[in-house]
Every structure is written in structure tokens, then in C-alpha cells.
Nucleic acid binder design. Structure first.
Lengths: 344, 344
DNA sequence: CTTTTTTGCGCTACCGGTTGCACGTACGAT
DNA sequence: ATCGTACGTGCAACCGGTAGCGCAAAAAAG
């Protein structure tokens, strides 16, 4: 025989009072007499009563669930980000509904759809690298589901965003390289569509220009971040008449692929050619050749901020709503982290 | 002015029919006349009506949400596992509520509590390495929330489990090493509490015994999987009068820490001492010294199976429930994967 | 001792759907 | 003409709580 979970109804029946009395007694309503209150609360404890969150959330049109969509959880950047999101969520009694886009816009749409169906209170997303239309996300507006973008943010003004100012970071990194004597600095960038790529490129061009050097577009390669594509880029760079002295790669994964290719082609890593990268993932400490320097983008912090922002937005919902809505925009300042050079 | 979401009520009002008619028309009930049906369906389409899942789930006491608790999402093993879980979930229209225990039983309890409050339909969990009491999980029984354990499973008979048969895998690996001529095979194991550790140790002892060799317990170290602890173990092993010819490590992370220590102490990795490990994570391909061989535990497959099992259990719920419940137990067969030896 | 206020609790509607049952109408069969 | 039977639709209960309002009894004020 199934031992049904206790409900207010059950408690009310046993105590011969009404459900509303029970409800109020449990929430410590002042208008309930002390003796009834204690009777109710004691029985509740005895029965291990716990209010059915589903029912409450349903009534209050709130679930304390925020959807989180990431391209790939297996990338350490994102697993750190979700940890930051989770931490902030727990602190405010929110939970996370999880989904991956696998960098596929169709899949992304599908996951967004699922989240919408589940009526999450809000959605935090780092866009798939192929996503260039945002209809499926803007549609959430109608459902009153706020969206906070982080790291891979859309080119929209009307959106809440948390991201890293890679323009400045990249310029700094390029300067750092020049100061160290690397004259020909190559750059393996990501897909043009990605705003992250644009930022990086802008920063790179700015950095090179600052050195009063002519920009050599042969030094700039664009990839889709796949290993093959990175190897292709490396092939081109190594085939140049004047090989680069240093190579900046889009992130640590691209870095690892680039280094792998270079090693196979008898380049002494960080000696013949210096490698620098973005992300500063812990895992690079275990890799054969960590980059000489890496731009730390604080994924945990970004995720954390994104969730904090979401909670603020959610809390403001009841507020005055004085006509035009304001959109929040938070930049995280990246820092350049030097690594122990490893030359094998 | 907020543009409220359409409800059945709204449709009913506009069409001057009752909500039940609308509801039935939308679910294509045979008793509704064709003309009404189309009228309703057309208006629904026009208003972009979508049923409120929360209301339905509430009524049906079902949410299509399954909780997933992992020790660390940043470990590739678990990020792959959750991907497997997610894939199976999507296929059956389930979603995942995510939480990490950070290998901390208190935190695990807290997360379980949260999931319970949210009334997830089921819970899939890989235990924290310190967890040795399961009350907080068995308590879910009362709430009719089934639990499926995977990889790090409890020592309980009365539980649904999906895990890897590492006993057999370890024996095979030890044999493989002996066949290759490694006579003294050391073993850096995880915490005793972990059933995974016990399995491995059993397999190791079995493997050594099969070679008709005396078991040397100096060759067996126990760690808590932290880097410090692994370095400590390595220190002891390297201090032995007869150093091991090969070292089996608990997993690829321990492997990396062990190798790091060995390298710092001028051991030629995989030449002076051979290293083999468990997990076979993709990331090891980028590391300085991948293990010579690794036991693939198919985390994606394990996660996938766990979710499939969960769905089966959930679907069986309505069924006859002929008294005693049966518990499912699925073993995944690991395989030994050889790697390109890298000796620098 | 009446009037007003406070105290303690119940009735009922509501959130957004689903579903068993009843009711009225039209239609073919007897 | 009468009866059984599809057919099409509405009423109302229900899921598990919350909350406004009303009402009686007790306490305070007049």
C-alpha cells in the first residue's frame, strides 16, 4: 500500500480544521491562535509534511528554475561557467535546467523550445558558434522569460549580456609579445560570425598598429575551431616565407591543436615559435606545452555574474516597470597570465 | 500593457464554448465535432497557444524533469556522462535538473534536498567519494522518486545501478602488463570507501595472483585522489628499494598528477616506468604523457544507460506493482585501449 | 450592558488545465 | 409514433496549495 505524501488536506482532516487554517498556521500567519498553530505544526513535523513545490510554483507562476544552455559542457571553460552559475543559483534557491547546443543552431532552437515548454523562470545562454539569428530567443519575451547571454553574446543592443572585454585583452597580449621581442605575431582566429572573434581581431589589429607596424593579413587565419581547420591554418602559417615568431590562438583547445601540428612538423614549441592563447584552463597545466601566456576570462565569474544578473532581473519583475525596459551589460576584465615556459 | 499568454479559458471565451470543449478539441478528442474542432484549433494556432506545462505536470503529478547529481562536472568523465544522460533524456522528452556535490556529502545532501523539493520525477546520481550513508537518498523512496546510481554506486542491494565492471578490466590490464614484461606492477588506488576502489583492488590482486607471484602490498597505495595525496603515493613508490616497473593509477587525473611528480624526479615516463590508467579521456591525447594504455569506461554510454533505465522505471510506475519491487543492475564492459607511446 | 474592536477560523475562488458524467438533440430502427 | 443510440457539448470536480473576505465569539472600550 502506497503511503501517500501528507498534504494540507490530510492535516486539516486529522485536526478537524480547514485547509486554509493549516496553510496559515504553517506559514505562521498572525491571525491563527497559538494553540492551533502549534497543533498544526507538530502534526506537520510528525507526518514529515513538506509543501508540494509544484503546486506552489504553479499558483505563483514561478518555478525557481533557470534554464542554462551551453555549446559544450565538456569544454572546461563551460563546465567552470556552469559551476559559477550553479553557485549563485543555490545561494538564491534556484535550480538549473541543463541543455547543450553542441554548437548547432537547430539543436539550440530545440533546447530553447524545451525550456520554454517547461516554463523556466529565465534562460542563461552562451550561443552556439553558428547562431546568427535570435528569433527563437527573442520569442521568449512573449512568455515573459528573460534571457541573459554570457561569453558568446549576440550582436543585439536589446539584451542582457555578461562577457569579457577581449578587445582590450588582446591588445595587451600583442603588446606583451612585442615587448618580448616577437616581431611577427600571427593570429589564428575563430569564425567571423562570432562577436568574440571580431573583438579579438580588433584587439589584434589595434595592438599591431600601435607598434607602428604594417599589418600583414597573411598573419591572420580564420578557422571554425575544429582540429582540421586549425591544422590547415598552421600549415599555411608554417609555409610562409617569413614564419611567425609567435602565434596567438583563439583558445586553449585551438592552442593544443596548433601545438600538436607544430610538434609533428618539428617546430620547437615556445622556442622556434612562441604560443599564447585565451582561456587559461587548468587542464593546460597538464598538457605537453602550455602556452607562454594566456588570457584568463574567468568563466566561473562570468557564469556567476550572469546568474546574479538573472536573479536581479527576476526580482525586478514585480516592480514599477516604468515603461521602457533597461538592459544590463556587464563586462568582465580579462587578465594576462604568464605560464612557466616548457620547452622539451 | 502585458500581453498575457493565451489559455484555454481565453480561447473558450472568444469562441463561446466551454473550456472542456477547447481542451478536448486541442487533444483531438473523437467526441468533438469537426467544425468546433477546427475553429478551436485555428484560433489556437492564431494566438500561438501553448498549453502550460506546469499546470499539466502539476495535475498529472509528473514534470518530465530528472535530477542529475555529479561530483564534478569539470571532470571530462562526468561531462561525457551527462551528455549521455541528456541525449537519452531529449529522446524521451525529459529534461535535466543539474547539481554538483563537489565530492562533499553535506553538499550532496543539500542538492538532493533541493531536487526533492522540486519534486523531480527521478534522480540519477554518481555518489560523492565520501558518501557512505545513503539515508538522504533512500528517503526519496517515500516521495516516490526513483534513484538510479551510476559509476560511483553504493553498496546496496536494493538500488538501481549502472556501472563498469572494473574487476575484470583491471585483471586484464594487469595481465597485459605482465605479458609485456613488466614484473613489478604498482597500483595507486582511490579511497577505500569507494566501491570502485574495491573493484579495482580485487581485480589487481586477482591479476597479480594469476601470475603466481607473491602480492607485495608495498606496491599498493591508497589516495584520496587529490594531487598532494597522489604525489605522496609516488614518493613512497619511488623510494622503494625495488621500484615498480609499471604503475596503474586510479584514473587519468591521478595519472597526470603521478606523471607530473615522476617527471619532476627525473623519471623517463613510459620508459623507466610504464604508466597505465583508467578512463581514457580525450584530453589525455593532448597531455605530455598519455598512459600506455587506459581502461575505457564509456561514461557517455553509462550515462545514457542510466537515463534509459530511469525512463523504463518511470514508465513501469503505473504498472501492476506486483508486491516486491525489482532492482535493475546494469554492468558496462570496459575495454583496454592502447595509446601511442610518447617518450620525450 | 451595549458597542466596537480584536481574535480565530472557515468558505470559497483561483492558478490552467483534464476528465467522468450528464444532458439535449438528431437520426435510424422498430 | 416511439425508442435506442450515436453525437456534440457543458458542468463540475480535481491536482495542492494560497489568500481575500466574512462571520462568530471573545475582549476591550464606551
Amino acid at each position: 500500500m502506497e503511503n501517500k505524501l501528507p498534504t494540507v488536506k490530510e492535516i486539516a482532516r486529522r485536526l478537524n480544521v480547514s485547509v486554509s487554517t493549516v496553510s496559515r498556521a504553517l506559514s505562521d500567519h498572525p491571525r491563527i491562535g497559538l494553540r492551533t498553530k502549534t497543533r498544526v505544526q507538530e502534526l506537520a513535523k510528525e507526518l514529515n509534511y513538506e509543501p508540494n513545490a509544484k503546486a506552489i510554483f504553479f499558483k505563483q507562476r514561478k518555478s525557481f528554475i533557470v534554464g542554462v544552455i551551453l555549446p559544450f559542457i565538456r569544454e572546461e571553460f563551460f563546465s567552470q561557467a556552469i559551476s559559477g552559475i550553479e553557485a549563485a543559483a543555490m545561494e538564491h534557491d534556484y535550480t538549473i535546467l541543463f541543455g547543450q547546443s553542441y554548437d548547432n543552431p537547430d539543436r539550440e532552437k530545440q533546447v530553447v523550445e524545451t525550456m520554454k515548454k517547461q516554463r523556466v523562470d529565465g534562460l542563461i545562454i552562451s550561443l552556439s558558434k553558428e547562431t546568427n539569428k535570435y528569433d527563437h530567443l527573442q520569442a521568449l519575451d512573449k512568455y515573459d522569460i528573460p534571457v541573459v547571454y554570457f561569453d558568446r553574446v549576440p550582436q543585439l543592443e536589446q539584451a542582457h549580456k555578461v562577457y569579457c572585454d577581449l578587445y582590450k585583452g588582446t591588445t595587451e597580449m600583442v603588446n606583451w609579445l612585442f615587448n618580448r621581442g616577437y616581431r611577427r605575431v600571427a593570429f589564428i582566429n575563430g569564425p567571423d560570425k562570432l562577436s568574440a572573434s571580431k573583438e579579438r581581431l580588433k584587439g589584434y589589429l589595434e595592438g599591431v598598429s600601435k607598434q607602428k607596424l604594417k599589418i600583414d593579413m597573411q598573419m591572420v587565419e580564420t578557422t571554425d575551431l575544429s582540429r582540421e581547420s586549425t591544422h590547415e591554418a598552421m600549415k599555411k602559417l608554417l609555409a610562409l616565407k617569413h614564419r611567425p615568431h609567435a602565434i596567438v590562438t583563439f583558445n586553449d583547445y585551438v592552442h593544443m591543436d596548433a601545438v600538436q601540428y607544430a610538434e609533428q612538423h618539428n617546430i620547437l614549441i615556445n622556442k622556434d615559435i612562441a604560443f599564447v592563447s585565451y582561456a587559461n584552463l587548468p587542464i593546460t597545466n597538464y598538457t605537453a606545452y602550455p602556452p607562454l601566456a594566456s588570457i584568463e576570462q574567468y568563466p566561473y565569474g562570468q557564469g556567476n555574474k550572469a546568474m546574479e544578473l538573472m536573479i536581479r532581473i527576476l526580482n525586478e519583475k514585480g516592480m514599477p516597470t516604468n515603461g521602457a525596459r533597461t538592459y544590463h551589460n556587464e563586462k568582465v576584465v580579462p587578465t594576462l597570465v604568464m605560464h612557466q615556459p616548457v620547452i622539451r
